[in-house]
Design a protein around this nucleic acid. Structure first.
Length: 471
RNA sequence: CGUGGGGUAGAGCAGCCUGGUAGCUCGUUUGGCUCAUAACCAAAAGGUCAGUGGUUCAAAUCCACUCCCCACAACCA
């Protein structure tokens, strides 16, 4: 049992700007971290960037700048993006860093008994600089559609990791729940994939891949993405130079559904080869769609998260992506939906509730003593949060917010005040305390808003500017 | 015979695992309130739960088949 919960996010490949998918990954992890923090538990929270590989190398080259500068600038974009999302990781690792490279080299040495070298032979396009699958070869009739050139038959030396050494062990771990795959529906898919997974190629000849970590003891080979990138979850903690038993095994690893297979097959293989325990939970989230379609540059329907942040600010952004985007399933983003959620839910339900209560409290000289409240989160809420059902947890709190609006109407404190001011104060204090309880439950989701709400209802009530102004 | 997800009021979805009066949000219509960001509250209209067949006293729910949509292969969470 690790003493400090360790949560991880996928490290983005830095050949492009941050997009909403990255935002989702970060936010899901951040809510969990903040939720734990609210319970008085400190977490270790990793983040970082994946910076090696040919694509980055050639991109930098085409821009005419040194690759080190290119990745540094892009990594910085992600670091800033994380900050803008209100996400507060404890670590940020860059795979091109010296520490990472040195530690990965040591990791490679430790698992060498599960590594072997073999010739890889296949169809290769020199234009794409990559091998293609046999299936692809048949479909294209042996000619690369991008370059209109025939594929060549090439062979090269690769190192392979023996996935076969670990299949049974991984299967057992997944089935027993030792390593939980969430959601359940993807667990079956992973088990299917595991059955047929071949050993995986983990290196490339240096002549084909120069921007990467050298394979220890073989100058002609460079590590391919798997060990380089996946090992970040360990090297960021200092492994193998530092004892990581306080943090490892990870509590939750957040990944996108497209990279689940690597995290559920290759990654556990590496861990088992190292003799380390497997992560407790691998959570794979869905995609954010635009109008029901996958966002892509070619369709031109990409939503830039920075646009949303700029137009609406941080908490509305977090609100939409944590309540109206499902943790596990693909969800839709449209500006119409976002606008509707903002106006109906944030402004009318919550913002207006804060406003009307603040005014009523002020008029009736209500004074709130917050320091005495000993608050425990209701079980319904915690069990949803513990299972990462964030939007359901939101629903739970929102029911109470709507109930508060009803109760204000029903109890009519403004009428009571005319006859019985003390009774009105009592009613308002009760209602206000309930609102403050709601705000405590929303802290992991909307940190700034909750801070603002708690600032309003003190011994002296401060009537705030509208929390979520319209127009 | 590829694999997976889905088809439930105008829109978006829950319910299905563990059969028993079809629910939520938005929108629409009508009414109430006046503390509040023209906000809030209440009521109403609106569905042969994709289709066909089966199991059952009883099927949106379980089973079989059929139809339709979408993802999984190609930089991209």
């Amino acid at each position: 049992m690790s003493k400090t919960p360790y949560i991880t996010t996928a490290i983005p490949y830095v050949n492009g700007a941050p997009h909403v998918g990255h935002a989702l990954d970060y936010l899901l992890a951040d809510v969990y971290a903040r939720y734990k923090k609210e319970q008085g538990i400190t977490v270790r929270f990793q983040s970082g960037t994946d910076e090696h590989g040919n694509k980055i190398w050639s991109k930098a080259k085409s821009l005419g700048i040194p690759v080190e500068d290119y990745v540094r600038d892009n990594a910085e974009k992600f670091r800033e993006f994380i900050k803008k999302l209100g996400v507060e990781p404890t670590d940020f690792i860059r795979t091109s860093s010296e520490d990472h490279a040195r530690r990965v080299g040591k990791i490679w040495k430790k698992i060498e008994s599960h590594i072997y070298s073999a010739e890889y032979e296949g169809w290769y396009c020199s234009g794409c600089e990559r091998f293609i699958t046999d299936k692809e070869y048949e479909e294209t009739g042996g000619i690369c559609p991008d370059h209109q050139a025939p594929y060549e038959r090439l062979s090269e030396k690769n190192y392979y990791l023996k996935i076969s050494d670990f299949k049974e062990r991984i299967k057992t771990a997944i089935e027993s729940g030792e390593m939980t795959i969430l959601p359940e529906s993807r667990k079956k898919q992973v088990l299917n994939l595991l059955e047929t997974s071949p050993d995986v190629s983990i290196s490339r000849p240096k002549k084909n891949l120069s921007w990467g970590i050298p394979v220890p003891g073989d100058d002609s080979q460079v590590m391919y993405v798997w060990i380089d990138a996946l090992a970040n979850y360990l090297t960021v903690l200092g492994y193998p130079e530092t004892d990581i038993s306080d943090f490892w095994p990870a509590e939750v690893q957040f990944v996108g559904k497209d990279i689940l297979r690597f995290h559920a097959i290759i990654w556990p293989s590496i861990l088992l080869a190292l003799g380390l325990p497997l992560p407790k939970v691998i959570l794979s989230h869905g995609f954010v769609l635009a109008n029901g379609q996958k966002m892509s540059k070619s369709i031109g329907n990409v939503i830039d998260p920075l646009d949303i942040l700029e137009k609406y600010g941080l908490d509305p952004f977090r609100y939409y992506f944590l309540r109206h985007v499902d943790t596990f399933a693909d969800s839709d983003f449209t500006w119409e939906k976002f606008d509707a959620a903002y106006a109906n839910e944030l402004a009318n339900d919550l913002g207006n509730l804060v406003q009307r209560l603040a005014v009523l409290d002020k008029k009736n000289n209500v004074s709130i003593k917050t320091e005495v409240s000993c608050f425990t989160a209701p079980k319904n809420y915690t069990s949803l949060m513990d299972n990462f059902k964030y939007s359901a947890a939101f629903d739970y709190v929102w029911d109470e917010i709507q109930q508060l609006n009803k109760d204000i109407n029903d109890q009519q404190p403004w009428v009571v005040a005319k006859e019985n001011p003390e009774k009105a104060q009592e009613i308002l204090t009760g209602l206000t305390m309930r609102l403050l309880d709601c705000s405590k439950l929303l802290v992991p989701f909307l940190p700034d808003t909750c801070k603002a709400i708690q600032g309003v209802f003190q011994e002296t009530i401060t009537i705030p500017a509208p929390l979520f102004p319209k127009n």
